[in-house]
């Protein structure tokens, strides 16, 4: 079961330049674990000790997973995941 994951420019260094990759898993956590296996290093850019990094936004289809179940959000093969770094600063 492959789920499409759209990767932002700054993380394409891990995906060999690909804008979109396939991953497997039935929750967001499992998808990220699977991404890390195939694209080592990417997991640490998405997660820290407390979970999803504060300034990384992850969307299931068009919904921010923070408004769903966060890393426990269920995903299926019809779903697309989009990763976007926050545009933020001081």
């Amino acid at each position: 079961m492959a789920i499409e994951v759209r990767v932002p420019t700054i993380l394409r260094v891990y995906t060999g330049g690909q804008k979109s990759v396939n991953a497997e898993g039935d929750t967001l956590q499992a998808v990220i674990t699977n991404l890390e296996v195939n694209y080592p290093g990417i997991g640490g850019r998405l997660l820290d000790d407390s979970g999803l990094r504060r300034f990384v936004n992850v969307y299931l289809n068009d919904e921010d997973v923070r408004f769903l179940d966060g890393l426990n959000t269920s995903v299926g093969e019809q779903d697309a995941i989009t990763i976007l770094p926050a545009v933020a600063g001081g």
């Binding site: 936004n57 969307y59 921010d64 976007l84 926050a86 545009v87 933020a88 001081g90």
Partner: peptide, 15 residues
């Protein structure tokens, strides 16, 4: 002292 694009607006913008 801080700015951040709204998360839903950010998604729409990039789409």
């Amino acid at each position: 002292t801080f700015y951040e694009f709204d998360s839903a607006d950010l998604f729409t913008l990039y789409k």
